[in-house]
């Protein structure tokens, strides 16, 4: 646990700044109040990743709060990245949670719009979106850089989060998505995680556009990797909106006698190609429903970090 009085820079930020190839993964909070579930997920990732995203009611399904699970992960020795969506909280709740999260020692924040509630298990719920993700990034940056709340009033001991966000290299229209990425950087985003990459050619072309605009010098870019355990898992992934999977990979899975191994091999091949792309600062591994494979992937990719997982100064 870091000393709460001290302002410390997160281990994730230090890793980026020191030029390490950053590796993060995910902790998916349970659909229960069971803390040991989070502890077990954290134990798998401790010493293996620089930090772990803790999802915020992902796909609009009610789970343990990201804030609580991020704290549990932290106490278990894994630096966490608090995900915060604009779907469920107005600006009062968002700022309140930011104050609380920082007080608990959380230092990394990932700002998202959030999946629409109609996709989840409470489609009857009210739609908040008081802020959008860019306005959220700006609000967090204003807290950090100007010690002000969204209403412009000065605050004391304001949180100084390392600010992240997401981008989708495959979403339409690309020109507008790039404009949005620029706006997120201007608003104060320091690192950005991409949608899962399967189509590396297409991602390379996106990165080349990003480089031509110099954006890779303004924000750390982390490519998303999704590890599929089976053909079915890959087919389900393909159905997710904004996801692009080449048919060739689906065919490889279909024809494989050992789909688990094929899934790992595909992920490793993608990681290998991604690491050669100029301007990429790290990868973010998502192994939805197969979290225990993450250390294997990182090990086999030769990306085991050499850092000391105790991130307090």
């Amino acid at each position: 646990m870091p000393s709460l009085e001290n302002e410390y820079i997160s281990g994730l930020q230090r890793a980026y700044e020191s030029g390490e190839f950053v590796v993060t993964a995910e902790i998916g909070p349970p659909m229960s109040s069971n803390a040991s579930h989070v502890e077990k997920s954290a134990d798998v990732l401790r010493g293996v990743v620089h930090a772990a995203n803790v999802t915020d009611n992902q796909t609009s399904i009610v789970r343990m709060s990201s804030l609580a699970a991020s704290y549990i992960g932290l106490t278990r020795g894994v630096e966490t990245i608090l995900q915060m969506t604009c779907r469920d909280r107005n600006r009062i709740a968002i700022q309140s949670d930011l104050l609380g999260a920082y007080a608990l020692g959380l230092r990394n924040l990932l700002c998202l719009s959030g999946d629409h509630q109609s996709l989840g298990n409470h489609p009857q719920s009210k739609n908040v979106f008081d802020l959008d993700s860019i306005q959220l990034i700006k609000a967090v940056a204003d807290m950090k850089n100007h010690s002000i709340f969204i209403n412009g009033k000065k605050g004391k001991n304001m949180p100084k989060f390392f600010i992240g966000t997401t981008t989708n290299p495959f979403a339409d229209p690309r020109e507008l998505q790039i404009i949005r990425l620029k706006k997120k950087i201007e608003a104060g985003a320091q690192f950005v995680q991409t949608q899962a990459i399967y189509d590396v050619d297409s991602f390379e072309s996106w990165m080349s556009e990003v480089r031509s605009l110099g954006l890779h010098n303004e924000v750390y870019i982390q490519a998303g990797i999704l590890v599929n355990k089976s053909l079915r898992s890959m087919e389900m992934t393909k159905k997710v909106s904004g996801m692009s999977i080449p048919d060739e990979l689906i065919e490889r899975m279909r024809n494989s006698e050992n789909q688990e191994e094929e899934g790992i091999t595909i992920a490793l091949e993608i990681i290998d190609r991604l690491r050669k792309i100029e301007g990429l600062s790290g990868i973010h591994i998502m192994a939805v429903g197969w979290e225990k494979i993450v250390p294997t992937i990182i090990e086999r990719a030769g990306l085991m970090p050499t850092f000391d997982s105790n991130h307090s100064d």
Binding site: D132, Q135, T167, A171, D172, Q177, R180, G242
Partner: peptide, 10 residues
Amino acid sequence: KSLFNGPCGG
């Protein structure tokens, strides 16, 4: 989502 600054990624 009543977004003000461009589309979500979905």
